[in-house]
Design a protein around this nucleic acid. Structure first.
Lengths: 218, 218
DNA sequence: GCGGGAGTATGACAGCGGTCATAGTAGCCA
DNA sequence: TGGCTACTATGACCGCTGTCATACTCCCGC
């Protein structure tokens, strides 16, 4: 989706992320990636001399950046930024997809972690970096909403952990129940951590745009 | 571990779960499973005429039962059963493994979901059943501890979601930080949901043993 | 002894995987 | 025109996969 004209290289990275999301790393073939991207097979070794490992790692980098950038956009879409509201938006991205497009895809970072954590060092590191690129903006946003600094990162980790697990369960059940559940159950806890929930809408709005350059067109 | 003498068939199912846990479904070969189980290759088609699909599905069934049975054992190990204490034990199983044995393995159900949710219907259903076999006892235990029935299952889902996600992050980072974080952050929320936390130790202790037959030697 | 079934042992097959090698095309610069 | 670089195009290789076919070894019931 939205993969119009970005040069064959970017398209292949994007396609790799898409296919990994759906079938996992091991079941995703290089030829398949090229075909999905509408790119010539010969370009694979040209753009990715490091082979599949490099392609997968770049796909994870893209996914991490994408998830991180989404945070700012979620905040911008909220009338009053609150921790629970942010989490609800993060969850809603998945429930929307599952209800409209189906349960074909999960999180590519989760897929890579499951498939490569033990076998491929660089891919595990790329997955770790992707989680960091996602957790960072979330923690930053929480802090902007009045969550004490020392709790911002732990709560961001909790949010992402719950979301990742709920994605797994939702795909297995082909049902968004788990996703809506974690959103509903975790919301109050998140909001309770914001010491000054009244002013957070202003603070959040001001500093939101500094979270990321955000000139990408995610 | 603990896989002494259970007949070749059970050993192969057990080994399949172990290998899937480590490398994912697609990267785990049938020959590898047989070798890991110390079972003859020829037994594969004899015990699992349904092929790899059947073997994987049985491994998921085993994993779900195993996780479900662990709940009762965790409760029995707690001096005073509380929701937070149960969750801490569930998490501790993983931190212990990671700190002593290393980060080689994740959750086999998560691995199967990631690899097969879209490609293999029966395996997706087996994963769903495994999650159910795990969530059920947890929800039951929560109810026994005084959590209102209508919140028991949602909270169980939240616990398992957070745990699954934290396992992913922990493996990617090779660090138990995410696991200890979700345990610490979620604990108060869980205990707050128990309406009568004083008496739950007794109730929990009494009804704990009815959660599962528990005569398996997990 | 002896069928006969449970379980074991190999070998072959067809398919697909990632990767390498090699050759080709296009376009820019001098 | 010549040469250089960026990119594309194929074909081949080897290894591995799941699966099937076939033949073998036990051991139990009769």
């Amino acid at each position: 989706m939205t993969a119009a004209e970005h040069g064959p290289r970017e398209r292949m990275v994007f396609s790799a992320a898409q296919l990994i999301r759906r079938d996992g790393v091991a079941a995703t073939g290089m030829r398949e990636v090229a075909a999905h991207a509408g790119a010539p097979r010969g370009s694979l070794q040209h753009y990715f001399p490091g082979g599949k490992e490099q392609l997968v790692n770049e796909a994870l980098g893209w996914a991490g950046r994408y998830a991180g950038n989404r945070v700012a956009r979620f905040l911008a879409a909220l009338p009053e930024p609150t921790p629970a509201g942010l989490f609800a938006e993060m969850v809603r991205q998945w429930t929307d997809e599952y209800e409209t497009t189906g349960y074909a895809g999960g999180c590519p970072v989760a897929a890579a972690t499951v498939d490569c954590a033990e076998s491929t060092v660089s891919t595990r590191e790329a997955a770790s970096a992707a989680f960091a690129a996602w957790t960072g903006p979330v923690a930053h946003a929480l802090a902007d909403m009045g969550v004490p600094r020392e709790r911002a990162t732990p709560l961001a980790t909790l949010m992402i952990s719950s979301l990742e697990g709920a994605i797994l369960i939702a795909r297995a059940e082909r049902n968004t129940r788990a996703l809506t559940t974690v959103s509903r159950e975790l919301g109050p806890l998140l909001d309770a951590a914001a010491v000054n929930p009244i002013c957070c809408s202003r603070i959040g709005e001001k500093k939101t745009h500094s979270i990321h350059k955000a000139n990408d067109k995610n």
